[in-house]
């Protein structure tokens, strides 16, 4: 059996692995360069040419290590690396078309999650009677799920001719995505996010005499966290117990999200940092169907293959680019700290 200390040591070992790998590559390349030097002045011209070619390649490797590998290792390990995610989707402006788009986004995230070996479950979903999905909550389980999804938070805008528009006019609609950090049930207590006595638990709908008199399924539950005013309603499960569990999961995720946001704000305040914080009402991405184009407005990146993005494949390119952008911002912050 492994002890908690063993696990901590193993984690440390695993976390330092990229460092070791980069250093090994650096020393190996340096050594190869040293070994190559005498050959550069070899008497055989073809040998000299070969050596020069090799020299250039090794030089390129060193530059790559210096310019991107080493700096990326400076980025402090993410404090949220182990967290799963809860993704909330809410339709916005645009009526039924917004709900139809939300269903497309939901499908995109489900596919993206499974491509990344995360376990995705729709835990709440309100269908729109006229088509599509009004709102949904998806649980994405797996290490790194939060870090992969977190940059999806914000307003997503779609421009297309809705399948419901007979006249064929282009509509603009929006859907809002909120990505929350999801803790394991056993870790919720450790984080001390709320006190039980601060949470009001209510059941919804009257049940008349109740008990043996009624066998209708009435399982809807609403939680109110009094200090923060956060309310969570859950009615997708067939038992109160399950809905309560789900509702507490959402409440914990929202409170954890507030905690992380608060910590970032505090850190930034002490650093007097000018880095803009993520605003959830900000329009982050536009999906233009007519032009097969998806643009992320934060990093000014466009992908000219909307179909692939919606299939969850090219979404990876956005996620990678946003992660890189975030890391570069972190590095800039670190450098600024050094200058102060």
């Amino acid at each position: 059996m492994s002890t908690p200390e063993d696990i901590a040591r193993l984690r440390q070992l695993k976390e330092s692995e990229p460092l070791q790998k980069a250093w090994d590559e650096w020393t190996k390349t340096k050594k190869s360069l040293e070994d190559l030097k005498p050959l550069l002045s070899d008497s055989d011209p073809s040998m000299r040419a070969l050596a020069a070619e090799e020299h250039e390649a090794l030089d390129g490797t060193l530059t790559q290590l210096l310019q991107s590998t080493f700096p990326s290792l400076l980025v402090p390990p993410s404090t949220t690396a182990s967290l799963s995610a809860l993704v909330e989707l809410k339709s916005g402006a645009g009526g039924t078309e917004s709900s139809l788009f939300l269903a497309d986004l939901l499908r995109m995230y489900m596919r993206f999650a499974s491509a990344n070996s995360f376990r995705a479950t729709v835990v709440a979903e309100n269908e729109n009677e006229a088509g599509g999905t009004k709102d949904a909550i998806v649980e994405i389980k797996g290490e790194g799920a939060y870090d992969a999804f977190r940059w999806e938070s914000g307003v997503h805008r779609v421009q297309r001719v809705p399948s419901t528009d007979a006249a064929g006019r282009v509509h603009t609609s929006t859907a809002t995505v909120i990505v929350l950090p999801l803790l394991e049930e056993k870790d919720v207590q450790k984080e001390d996010l709320f006190r039980m006595e601060d949470v009001k638990i209510e059941v919804m709908r009257a049940r008349g005499a109740g008990g043996q008199h009624v066998n209708k399924t009435e399982s809807a539950v609403r939680l109110t966290h009094i200090p923060s005013g956060i309310t969570v309603s859950m009615q997708d499960e067939r038992s109160q117990h399950q809905n309560k569990r789900r509702a507490f999961q959402v409440l914990s995720a929202r409170l954890m999200d507030q905690k992380i946001t608060r910590e970032i704000a505090e850190r930034r305040a002490t650093r007097n940092s000018l880095v803009k914080s993520a605003d959830r009402s900000e329009k982050i991405r536009t999906y233009n169907y007519a032009q097969e184009r998806v643009t992320d407005h934060r990093i000014g990146m466009s992908i000219m293959n909307l179909t692939s993005v919606m299939e969850g494949d090219a979404l990876q390119d956005f996620v990678d680019a946003l992660k890189k952008d975030h890391e570069e911002t972190l590095m800039e912050e670190m450098l600024n700290d050094q200058c102060d």
Binding site: G211, Q212, R238
Partner: peptide, 22 residues
């Protein structure tokens, strides 16, 4: 019918577990 963390089989005419009981 889910009942707490359990999932029980139910079939007529045996009484369906109620949320009050849970």
């Amino acid at each position: 019918q889910p009942f707490g963390p359990l999932e029980l089989s139910v079939r007529p005419p045996i009484l369906i577990p109620r949320p009050e009981t849970e």
